[in-house]
């Protein structure tokens, strides 16, 4: 199913990108671009980037392309314009394009890391044994198997139903605690606040490692160590840390495509889905390490606003 959707989207994206490049009519080019970029939004959904897909449709397809169409309307008396270059330029451009494409496809196919990674829930230790046996049966000796704590869930207990400030304070306290224990460590975690269903006075904060543990030399999550770090701190007087639970998991790295598929489809294994990407995005932008870039992006929009106004008005003002 995923493959069918992918090839459908890929066909639409590439064919319409081709139309953008070859048509003689600028308006047709703009509409073809709209379809192509819409297909890219579809890719984002396939890649677990739901929020980005929505933004792609709203801002890119909705906003930017309307802007481009306005540009087309205001600069062309006729719709059919001289779009194409003479053959003397087309040929070298095609040549360069093909060489570039060849290089990119080669790099994408065989020069980039393409080892798949899977993480399974493993609450009883049974999964690790099962995966190891499956790997042996499939002859995948090169795969690396690692048992680890994939997620730590901290549970806070309040005196009464929790208000938003309490939630924020708890989150800050966790961040500060991690930071104090090891500078630069807070950005190694995805931190997500979860409400506890049916218990408004409780609050759970889930911690997950960003990236793979091997990439930065940090030890994997260790619930007892985290409890030790966070136990002494109480974010507010009416809020206590009452439980630190680790979620055991098995991480399998260096899988070939066939083995990856086999493991994924095994009914006895439960794949651990990462914390929600939309919430993770919001966290990274508003509370995490990307606050400064967020501000800079706002500044860039201000510059664009002012700049467009100045350039548009300078012809009118005497």
């Amino acid at each position: 199913m995923e493959a069918v959707v992918f090839y459908l989207l890929a066909g639409v994206a590439v064919v319409f990108a081709g139309v953008v490049v070859t048509t003689r009519n600028v308006v047709h080019a703009a509409f073809a671009l709209m379809v192509s970029l819409g297909a890219v939004a579809g890719f984002y959904v396939l890649l677990d980037a739901d929020f980005l897909a929505v933004i792609q449709l709203l801002v890119y397809v909705g906003g930017i392309l309307v802007l481009v169409l306005f540009g087309v309307m205001m600069t062309s008396g006729r719709l059919i314009m001289q779009l194409r270059a003479p053959v003397g330029q087309l040929l070298p451009a095609t040549f360069v394009g093909l060489i570039l494409l060849g290089f990119l496809l080669h790099v994408g196919r065989s020069e980039l890391p393409n080892n798949r990674t899977l993480v399974f829930e493993d609450s009883d230790g049974e999964t690790a044994r099962r995966v190891a046996r499956l790997l042996r049966e499939l002859g995948a000796e090169s795969a690396r198997l690692q048992s680890e704590t994939a997620r730590v869930v901290l549970t806070f207990q309040g005196a009464g139903p929790l208000r938003p400030e309490a939630v924020r304070d708890a989150r800050r306290a966790v961040e500060r605690g991690l930071q104090a224990a090891r500078p630069s460590s807070s950005r190694l975690y995805v931190i997500q606040v979860q409400e506890v269903w049916g218990a408004p006075e409780r609050l759970q904060i889930a911690l997950e490692r960003k990236g793979t543990p091997a990439s930065d030399g940090m030890a994997p999550l260790d619930p007892s160590r985290i409890a030790e770090i966070l136990q002494p701190l109480s974010p507010r007087e009416d809020l206590r840390l009452i439980a630190v639970q680790g979620l055991r998991a098995v991480r399998v790295q260096g899988l070939s495509e066939a083995v990856y598929r086999r493991l994924r489809e095994d009914p006895a294994l439960r794949v651990l889905t990462p914390l929600s990407t939309t919430a993770g995005l919001g966290d990274a932008l508003m509370l995490g390490e990307f606050l400064l870039p967020f501000e800079v992006a706002g500044l860039i929009l201000l510059v664009a606003l002012m700049g467009a106004a100045i350039i548009a008005r300078k012809g009118i003002t005497p």
Partner: peptide, 24 residues
């Protein structure tokens, strides 16, 4: 890498407008 790109764009966008500042 992200900051590098954002910084370059901030400088660039302002410079584009500055370069076209003369009226008429």
């Amino acid at each position: 890498l992200l900051m590098l790109y954002l910084a370059m764009e901030t400088a660039s966008l302002s410079s584009y407008v500055l370069a076209g500042f003369l009226s008429g």
